[in-house]
Design a protein around this nucleic acid. Structure first.
Lengths: 141, 141
DNA sequence: CCAAACGTAACAAACTTTGTTGCTTCTACG
DNA sequence: CGTAGAAGCAACAAAGTTTGTTACGTTTGG
């Protein structure tokens, strides 16, 4: 249960919302999304809450309410999704400070942080190349 | 404590071993490495054990034993380190199977797996561009 | 033989993730 | 204007990781 499946859950929800939209259902409840993802509705509300904070979906409350896409699926990249739901860096530095009396302990953190950032940037760029619409297209083809 | 600091610990250990080597100390004990990283010697033995299994370091046991680099620091990339210590994928799929009666639930997993693999490959390629020797150079400069 | 150091198992503490329940808040609609 | 339906949210448990720690076996140079 270690790794992050939040991007997967969120991307699944968005693709399903887009498919429903094409079928004429603009708004879905968390229950309906949860049925496709096969999880609890609260888990979906939490995930879609993250996406809402990032503007990727909008939520209406009250009777007959639910979630809808905040903008066209072709304008939501997987990078947008990742940024919305994934607060953790891909690689972490030491969590207890290294020994500063050692030259390596003293100097290694900015060096690694820099290299990790570079690698993370290429990862992000790759995610930015696919949209929710692309994902749905590939699912349906 | 969520994210992976194993690459950091291992890279720190390797850079320190290389610096010690240049100073004439070919072999370091786990205690000596632990002192620089500022952690427990058993943690270092676990980490260097992973690296040893990947051929990046060698360990000698018995009296006067310790760890030494398995090949030149300029030939150990951060990708080698990552592969040696990081079994987890960067992004995970659903851990409970999605609803297979929904088109999205049925088709999304290979699509996402493919996209995640692409992004992970660029991440790996970025890590492959730096070696332990590069890291040490940047620390010392 | 024996001392030094790796190898490894076992365990606790802290933390995350997911799932779940229960309650509150909002709002469209009759 | 009340009510039902649905999001929002807090709290909690179960399971899993990570890190640190102790303890003990295993190896080997001298």
């Amino acid at each position: 249960m270690a790794a992050n499946s939040r991007v997967t859950i969120a991307a699944h929800a968005l693709a399903w919302m887009e498919l429903a939209r094409r079928r004429g259902r603009e708004v879905l409840t968390s229950e309906e999304v949860a049925a496709s993802v096969n999880t609890n509705a609260v888990v979906i509300r939490r995930s879609l809450g993250d996406l809402q904070r990032a503007g990727l979906v909008s939520a209406r409350r009250g009777n007959g309410a639910g979630f809808s896409l905040g903008r066209p699926a072709a304008q939501i990249t997987l990078l947008d999704v990742w940024l919305a739901v994934s607060p953790e860096p891909l690689l972490a530095l030491h969590h207890s400070e290294p020994n500063l009396e050692c030259p390596v302990g003293r100097g290694i953190r900015p060096v690694l942080a820099d290299l990790y950032d570079e690698a993370t940037d290429t990862f992000r760029a790759a995610l930015a190349r696919s949209t929710v619409a692309d994902v749905l297209e590939r699912i349906l083809s």
